[in-house]
Nucleic acid binder design. Structure first.
Lengths: 256, 256
DNA sequence: CCCTGTGAAGGTTTTCACAGCC
DNA sequence: GGCTGTGAAAACCTTCACAGGG
């Protein structure tokens, strides 16, 4: 699934596949770690292992960005960090508002991974008046009444919804009306947004349900295998997993 | 990307595509809402809209489960709820442990979506001795030392990791050694697990980075469109979004 | 000789469009 | 006539395998 904009016909020369975009942050994280250890270059094989992906995929992904490697050598770590950051738009500052400061909202506010990647928490917003002024992660919570003003004053284009499901659509509508065009939704609801607005969702219980499906499947297989109905399962030898990546599935995403 | 088991050759009669599995929880949520409103039947069109997916996809998805609809009428809500629950393995009880009771762990412990879907929080575990005994969401936190005992006594097969990145692999190893075979990882690290163990990950900052990518793209397009270089963007009329679904991308998944 | 970059093949997922049943 | 279920086509993504540059 794309972004709703992927459908546009013309001018798709810079078209980076959605699946590739989804992996760029993984590569970036692995590269940042290498950079911190002052590793100068890395091969597709090594980087792929660090990102939990296979190397052919990684090379194909990078080929969409351009030819940033050197044959016989590998990729220059610093250079790649820069190129991927630029491609993802992380070289600019993205002010973000978080709406709904419960446990989850607080966890998000405290999450270090944002600040280090060009995201700045511009404001924390909650509907509970008794929260107003209370600092969370060093930032004072503001009341929902201020929402429009904050977004306009700070030029916020990305909003995070961490409210209960019942409030999510209403908050979403206000965010969009005030100018937000990208929304990360943690509430377990389908949001309705106008064209041009991207929504991505993260649903904790969905991930668990998918695990349960496979878990159940495993149990069934064992039983079947024990009964000799199915070829015996491969021995479970310990070995580093490969290809641990997002992917083609549930991640929970989607366009508007 | 499949589950690592998808590759197995033989006996794939019950093979439900991974992309379909990833959407079943969405359908289930929409159906549960209809059930609560005592709606008896629903058409593929209506249910698809409620789940944020298109109707052809939904019908194809259901066709993998069997023929549970009635032509000219639609689907029986209660019956479908049951069939999907069963397929996902939610008709049985899944004890779950959450390791790492910071803001995020606490949010997860408090999250209502678990209990209502067959997941039972069997224990909360944290490495900080001063947390031990403190109740979170009504459940007393236990120390990491108890981890193996808890997992074995309760027959836990699903573990949730909400620790800092540095501790994640170690916790993962202990969970796996104690018998856990499915892991939901919130720490921003690639986990290495033996074959037969499924890992799914949720990375908050990855989702934001993907939004930033599209956000940047929009800005660039507007500029280009203003300059007449690109066909003018479609007017942004308000209209309910369709096809808001997980999907083929970053969700963050993968097999072992 | 090593490792990137990439056509081509193979697989999976989505979408179309309509036959078939109620 | 309405709506499901599904082959067939199209789009998308991954993997293979190797040409070609360092």
């Amino acid at each position: 699934m794309a972004t709703g904009r992927t459908h546009r016909p013309a001018t798709r020369s810079r078209g980076i596949p959605e699946a590739t975009v989804a992996r760029l942050p993984l590569y970036l994280r692995a590269l940042t770690a290498l950079s911190e250890r002052s590793v100068p270059t890395v091969s597709s094989e090594e980087l792929a292992a660090a990102a939990g992906v296979n190397s052919a995929k990684l090379r194909k992904d990078f080929s969409y960005l351009g030819s940033y490697g050197t044959r016989g050598v590998g990729y220059d770590v610093e250079y790649l960090v820069y190129q991927i950051s630029r491609e993802l738009g992380l070289t600019q500052d993205w002010p973000v508002v978080i709406v709904g400061i419960g446990n989850l909202g607080a966890a998000l506010a405290n999450y270090g991974g944002f600040a280090s990647r060009g995201f700045r928490v511009a404001a924390l917003i909650d509907a509970d008046p008794s929260m107003a002024g209370k600092p969370v992660a060093g930032i004072p919570v503001q009341h929902t009444d201020e929402l429009e003003k904050i977004i306009q004053d700070d030029g916020v284009s990305i909003g995070v919804i961490a409210t209960p499901a019942g409030a999510a659509q209403q908050v979403c509508d206000r965010l969009v009306a005030a100018g937000v065009t990208s929304i990360l939704n943690f509430a377990p609801t389908v949001l309705s947004v106008p064209e041009g607005v991207d929504v991505r969702k993260v649903d904790l219980s969905i991930e668990l349900q998918i695990l349960a499906f496979h878990e159940q499947r495993k149990a069934g297989e064992e039983a079947a295998a024990d009964a000799g109905v199915v070829p015996p399962a491969v021995a479970r030898k310990q070995r580093p997993s490969t290809d641990q990546g997002p992917d083609g599935d549930v991640p929970a995403v989607m366009p508007a």
